[in-house]
């Protein structure tokens, strides 16, 4: 029942060339980036022989280290919170019918659609207003910093987590929960012993996705970051403006490798077996 037709001559050739061009377009910049991160020259785009100096600099540069530690803190914490909130949101939307169900459903997807800049401005405005309000009413002063960055990351990660978890829940037969209840499990136990193990791949996948997005975000973070809360991507962005050094090549390669690893893990987790029954 194959629906693919045998292409011949010109069409086949044109498609092959197209495929090659697409891949070149995708991966040539990455190849260049990786190559020049090993280049022993102070200019970003000039080959000066092989060296690991830039990676060494990456390891020794205190600012980079600080940014990396901020990135990891923000990413881990925001992921943890957004996994809990995103999973519960997914459960509520997938398992219960309530008033405004569809509305909340649409709302949840919004952060995925909204442009980063818009989200960033929204967040900035929100925090500024909130801080003014707290200052005026309670006399407590807050400043932008780790907390605001983390909160913003939680705000957009929830959507991604709940989308992934919902996909998993939708593939899971609801009768399984009924069966558990029928077999004397309380609501909590049915969740703990049947639902949760079956959606775990989705939860893990969602968490890794949230982690990746948090580690990669520049735009939103830059708007809501304060002194001492510069994440690695924001730092790299700053480096470019100050004058480019091949150090950013090395930093970028490390970030690229970490992202690819996380996305791969996320895909693997989502594919893990269980959930859909025969």
């Amino acid at each position: 029942m194959s629906t693919t037709k045998q292409l011949r001559g010109g069409a086949k050739w044109a498609l092959s060339v197209n495929a090659v061009l697409v891949y070149v377009f995708f991966y040539a910049p990455i190849a260049l980036l990786v190559m020049y991160s090993f280049s022993n020259d102070n200019l970003v785009g000039r080959w000066g022989g092989f060296t690991l100096d830039w990676y060494r600099a990456f390891g020794e540069n205190q600012e980079v280290q600080n940014a990396l530690s901020v990135s990891l803190k923000v990413a881990l914490f925001s992921t943890l919170i957004s996994v809990i909130l995103g999973t519960t949101a997914a459960l509520a939307l997938e398992r219960y019918r309530f008033r405004g169900n569809r509305f909340f459903d649409a709302l949840l997807y919004l952060p995925v659609i909204i442009p980063d800049v818009t989200m960033a401005v929204m967040m900035l405005l929100f925090f500024t207003q909130l801080f003014n309000f707290l200052d005026a009413v309670f006399g407590i002063r807050f400043a932008k910093g780790l907390a605001t960055v983390t909160l913003s990351h939680i705000a957009f990660s929830i959507s991604f987590v709940s989308i992934v978890v919902r996909a998993r829940l939708a593939g899971m037969n609801e009768t399984l929960e009924e069966a558990a209840r029928d077999l004397y499990a309380s609501r909590w136990k049915a969740f703990r012993y049947v639902t949760l193990p079956l959606i775990t791949p989705g939860v893990v996948g969602g968490a890794l996705l949230a982690l990746t997005i948090s580690l990669d975000d520049v735009v939103i973070t830059q708007f809501v970051a304060g002194p001492g809360s510069t994440t690695l991507p924001v730092y790299v962005f700053g480096l470019i403006r100050r004058g480019v050094s091949p150090l950013i090549n090395a930093v970028s390669v490390v970030m690229l490798a970490a992202s690819i690893l996380l996305v791969l893990l996320s895909l693997l987790a989502q594919r893990a077996r269980g959930g859909t029954t025969a």
Partner: peptide
């Protein structure tokens, strides 16, 4: 009364065996 408090058990249409 919720299902877990009743002295009955069910064989479901598609068995609903726990796959994990």
């Amino acid at each position: 009364l919720p299902p877990n408090k009743r002295p009955v058990n069910t064989v479901f249409q598609n068995y609903a065996l726990f796959p994990h």
